[in-house]
Design a protein around this nucleic acid. Sequence first.
DNA 1: CCCGACATTGTGGAAATCCGCAATCCGCCC
DNA 2: GGGCGGATTGCGGATTTCCACAATGTCGGG
Lengths: 203, 203
Amino acid sequence: MNANAAALAHIVDDDEAIRDALAWLFETRGVVSRGWPSAETFLADYVDAMHGCVVLDIRMDGMSGLECFDRLLALGCRMPVIFLTGHGDVPLAVATLRKGAYHFIEKPFNDNELVNVVIEALRHDAAARELEAAQATVASRLASLTAREREVMELILAGKLNKVIADQLDIAMRTVEVHRSRIFEKMGVRSAVELSQLLARKN
Amino acid sequence: MNANAAALAHIVDDDEAIRDALAWLFETRGVVSRGWPSAETFLADYVDAMHGCVVLDIRMDGMSGLECFDRLLALGCRMPVIFLTGHGDVPLAVATLRKGAYHFIEKPFNDNELVNVVIEALRHDAAARELEAAQATVASRLASLTAREREVMELILAGKLNKVIADQLDIAMRTVEVHRSRIFEKMGVRSAVELSQLLARKN
DNA sequence: CCCGACATTGTGGAAATCCGCAATCCGCCC
DNA sequence: GGGCGGATTGCGGATTTCCACAATGTCGGG
């Protein structure tokens, strides 16, 4: 099952009737979903490349939604997580939200409101994924630099002249120029200012 | 009363006994505070330069804590706001946190925990203020640029050569150089890369 | 009218950057 | 040993950037 190919709303709830009802509800608004009967099964299949959002019931047999959330966080999951609960209390809601949960919704909920939240979460994930892809490209270019090139790059970004860098590293100015040229080539830029702008977009 | 000079924990609660108890509690941990008997009195004195955090009771005679929060947001208040409530429910907690409240604490609360939250909020505010001050300096330098200089600056930051900028704006290359020099002077930098780095830190 | 800010331009020369071509040395791996 | 990648360097010439000094024209405000 290729859960990576498209953005899905992952419904994690041990109650099959609820999973089906939610799937149906989401479908009426064009949201593709997948149901998981337990936190364990979802986590077993979880991979970083999963796109979309997680609709997570708090109270389940076996692993709870909260434990599942902690696990997802530990795994570096960036999908927005929407908690559903029939038995929440304020400290719990506050704690999960402050831990980074996307939303916390009590049952019974307004159908439309939930779908709106899901759609918004999917959008959020899409935007985050796009930014991540761009940043990964930059990161891989950075990874292609040799240690020396990285050293010279820092000095370039600090605005130092080639001759100053040469003095500082006790090398010839021509060598600085060579490194500089190689750095720009690998990073796909033509000048120090372009490089700076590229890296600013990464962070 | 100069509430701007130092970072204070602003206690907004119509119950004087609670205000005093909190003030005393905060004082035991070295936190300076000021009590306000109502949202209205606090808002009447509110100025942007107030530093610290706001400890806000939700249920008060007159204006509620929630209305007060909305007002603060509308005024662009960046102080962290900690809600205290004896009668909160989950949707309320979720809504305020998603609106940007710093924390939401139910009464009765653990004294130590509340002070920890306040201290953390004060730290948060201090860091945010520092960043803001640095950004304001850059912003005011940017504001000192003429329209033409700003136009040329964008092109410089795009990595374009002086001769390309000259062609694009249909002016002499010497003119581009003059603008360039004036821009760097006003922005307090010596090169395009320094300028780029400075602006990246602003955003 | 006068003044100041802004935009523009020119001259000539210095400084900084860029680069093709070529070469050497070192360390690592097969 | 041979090959490869990385670091280093030199030469000479081209391009780009920088700048002191000077000047002109326009616009807005007193």
